[in-house]
Design a protein around this nucleic acid. Structure first.
Lengths: 242, 242
DNA sequence: CCAATCACGATGGTATACAATTGTCAATCG
DNA sequence: CGATTGACAATTGTATACCATCGTGATTGG
């Protein structure tokens, strides 16, 4: 049989669509950290066979979004608070580096894209009350800034590494909370970063990017401290099934 | 058939052995950058079927050691001089970070391992003339220092990222030349890095690591300049087949 | 003689059948 | 009654057969 629900019209290749769709499912939170990813189930759901799906899962494993134990299957990676701190430390380093590079080499097209994103963000800012969905949308839009800046560096390895980093961080349920925490500051920081990059001021861009992440990191630290107080010791976010 | 040359006694899983062996083949230079990796050919050579081999290739693609064009196959990644510069810039950043972290958290076992490596390196240093094989061996041993330091940070994402980075850099045929260039300096720098880490002096370790990579980067820059003079413009290392 | 097109061969992409491993549940023995 | 062991079911790991796509070279028409 050709596949029951053969919907895709233009599948560059099935393993690519499998990779993209599973990745999106994870990043959108449709499958939660710690949950198992059963091959048959997923391949049925996506309307393709196990082979391209497994190739996608293998790639996602290297990217760190899923973990695999031989003969036991795949699960969505669980990011604990300690790991999150490490990831944010690295992001501080690499985001600053990327911002400086982007400031030096950003194209007119990139600047236009940043302008467009900033206009969209301004629309959110104008409203008094935002629904949770609106907030989620603003968060996603805000991430676009970082994605554009990273892309504009034009450095493949850096792009791949930071995308993997962002992906891992988005597995943290907590970040939503962190970002909402001081949303006004986040908005101001985003403006400063974009201003510095579009002004092609590398030093300033690096400083702004570093501060931006540093605050997230400090916010996280407060959460960790609060957790310690509550539970006596810090605990992972989800129950890791042995 | 069970596989003609079934040598492996303890294959945790075939896709794992495929991954390890192909990776080793690439890093050891048994297949050169730009060369195609034909699936049937490789799977025959390794004595397994195409399925586990393809899963390994998919992982290596994400890691950046091989590239894949749909319907055209896999090739070993070609690292040009511009990319090499970008990689060394990142390595400067990350190695310094890793060295500082390792200095803070290195275990007694890690220190012992570093000592052992340094003793092996001292043996090389004692000799007046080294064969090319000896030199290659000394280079590999020197890399052990970085591997140990990276591992001792205990930060998974950093470890994975730097291992990928080292892998990509080892695709550069030129690095051998670079490293041989001022071998006496390299030796001194290695000593300083190890001394700083074992003394648990993070600041000093970071500084030493940064300087170490920075010199490689400067050496590379000289090569690029020389290339420009020779050819009028810089050229990639190998012919990239469209 | 050159160029465009068509057919064939090689290679990768996908599906499916089968083997191996692991976890679970039940039965039996202490 | 509890624990240990053995068989079965579920799930992943591997092999292979088949299909789609692409590059290449030959052939034919200008």
């Amino acid at each position: 049989m050709k596949g029951s629900g053969n919907i895709d019209r233009n599948p560059a290749t099935l393993k690519q669509t499998a990779f993209d769709r599973v990745r999106a499912m994870i990043l959108r939170g449709e499958v939660r950290p710690g949950e198992p990813l059963r091959e048959r189930e997923l391949s049925d759901k996506l309307g393709l066979s196990r082979t391209p799906l497994r190739e996608a899962l293998n790639k996602l494993e290297i990217e760190g979004l899923v973990e695999n134990q031989p003969h036991r299957g795949y699960t969505v990676t669980v990011v604990d608070l300690k790991t999150a701190g490490e990831l944010l430390d690295l992001r501080m380093l690499l985001d600053a580096h990327a911002a400086a590079l982007a400031a030096d080499s950003i194209t007119e097209k990139g600047i236009a894209e940043l302008d467009a994103v900033m206009r969209r963000l301004a629309a959110f800012e104008a409203h008094e009350h935002l629904s949770l969905d609106d907030l989620a949308e603003e968060v996603r839009t805000g991430m676009r800034i970082h994605e554009i800046i990273v892309r504009e560096t034009g450095q493949r390895f850096l792009i791949d590494t930071l995308n993997a980093l962002y992906g891992r961080l988005s597995l943290l349920i907590w970040v939503d909370v962190l970002w909402i925490d001081r949303w006004d500051l986040t908005r101001a920081e985003h403006k400063e970063i974009v201003a510095a990059v579009t002004a092609r001021d590398g030093k300033r861009a690096a400083r702004a990017a570093k501060l931006h992440v540093q605050r997230s990191r400090d916010d996280l630290q407060r959460v960790v401290d609060a957790q310690s107080l509550l539970h006596g010791t810090h605990r992972p976010l989800a129950e890791g099934r042995r």
